[in-house]
Amino acid sequence: MSLSEHIPVRLKRLPNGQDLPLPAYATSGAAGMDVVSAEDVVIAPGARHAVATGLAMAIPHGFEIQVRPRSGLALKHGITVPNTPGTIDSDYRGELKVILINHGTQDFAIARGDRVAQLVLAPVVQGGWIEVDELDETARGEGGFGSTGGVVALGN
Score class of each variant (00 low, 15 high):
residue 1 M to R: 12
residue 1 M to A: 15
residue 2 S to N: 15
residue 2 S to Y: 14
residue 3 L to W: 13
residue 3 L to V: 11
residue 4 S to G: 06
residue 4 S to P: 02
residue 4 S to I: 09
residue 4 S to E: 14
residue 4 S to W: 11
residue 4 S to H: 13
residue 5 E to A: 12
residue 5 E to D: 14
residue 6 H to W: 06
residue 6 H to Q: 12
residue 6 H to L: 10
residue 6 H to F: 10
residue 7 I to K: 01
residue 7 I to M: 02
residue 7 I to D: 03
residue 7 I to V: 13
residue 8 P to M: 01
residue 8 P to Y: 01
residue 9 V to M: 00
residue 9 V to K: 00
residue 10 R to D: 13
residue 10 R to H: 13
residue 10 R to P: 06
residue 11 L to M: 14
residue 11 L to F: 02
residue 11 L to G: 00
residue 12 K to S: 13
residue 13 R to W: 04
residue 13 R to H: 06
residue 13 R to K: 13
residue 13 R to G: 03
residue 14 L to S: 00
residue 14 L to Y: 00
residue 14 L to R: 01
residue 14 L to H: 01
residue 15 P to V: 05
residue 15 P to Q: 06
residue 16 N to K: 13
residue 16 N to R: 12
residue 17 G to V: 03
residue 17 G to K: 00
residue 18 Q to H: 12
residue 20 L to M: 13
residue 20 L to E: 08
residue 20 L to W: 10
residue 20 L to F: 14
residue 20 L to C: 12
residue 21 P to G: 14
residue 21 P to R: 14
residue 22 L to I: 14
residue 22 L to T: 07
residue 22 L to W: 09
residue 22 L to N: 12
residue 22 L to K: 10
residue 22 L to Y: 13
residue 23 P to K: 02
residue 23 P to W: 05
residue 24 A to M: 10
residue 24 A to L: 10
residue 24 A to N: 11
residue 24 A to S: 13
residue 24 A to G: 03
residue 25 Y to K: 04
residue 26 A to K: 09
residue 26 A to F: 05
residue 26 A to Q: 09
residue 27 T to F: 05
residue 27 T to A: 05
residue 27 T to M: 00
residue 27 T to W: 08
residue 28 S to A: 12
residue 28 S to E: 12
residue 28 S to H: 07
residue 28 S to G: 09
residue 28 S to Q: 14
residue 28 S to V: 11
residue 29 G to C: 04
residue 29 G to W: 03
residue 29 G to P: 01
residue 30 A to W: 05
residue 30 A to I: 05
residue 31 A to C: 08
residue 32 G to P: 06
residue 32 G to W: 00
residue 32 G to A: 03
residue 32 G to M: 02
residue 32 G to R: 00
residue 33 M to C: 10
residue 33 M to I: 02
residue 33 M to G: 00
residue 34 D to I: 10
residue 34 D to Y: 04
residue 34 D to P: 07
residue 34 D to G: 05
residue 34 D to W: 03
residue 34 D to E: 13
residue 35 V to F: 01
residue 35 V to G: 09
residue 36 V to L: 07
residue 36 V to I: 10
residue 36 V to F: 10
residue 37 S to A: 15
residue 37 S to E: 10
residue 37 S to V: 07
residue 38 A to R: 02
residue 38 A to D: 04
residue 38 A to F: 08
residue 38 A to L: 08
residue 39 E to Q: 14
residue 39 E to H: 09
residue 39 E to W: 08
residue 39 E to D: 11
residue 40 D to Q: 09
residue 40 D to C: 07
residue 40 D to W: 02
residue 40 D to V: 11
residue 40 D to A: 13
residue 41 V to I: 15
residue 41 V to S: 05
residue 41 V to H: 06
residue 41 V to T: 11
residue 41 V to F: 10
residue 42 V to K: 07
residue 42 V to S: 14
residue 42 V to W: 04
residue 42 V to Y: 04
residue 43 I to M: 09
residue 43 I to W: 08
residue 43 I to Y: 09
residue 43 I to Q: 11
residue 43 I to H: 06
residue 44 A to P: 05
residue 44 A to I: 08
residue 44 A to V: 08
residue 45 P to E: 02
residue 45 P to M: 04
residue 45 P to W: 10
residue 45 P to C: 04
residue 46 G to C: 04
residue 46 G to W: 03
residue 47 A to M: 08
residue 47 A to Q: 12
residue 47 A to K: 07
residue 49 H to W: 14
residue 49 H to M: 12
residue 49 H to D: 08
residue 49 H to R: 15
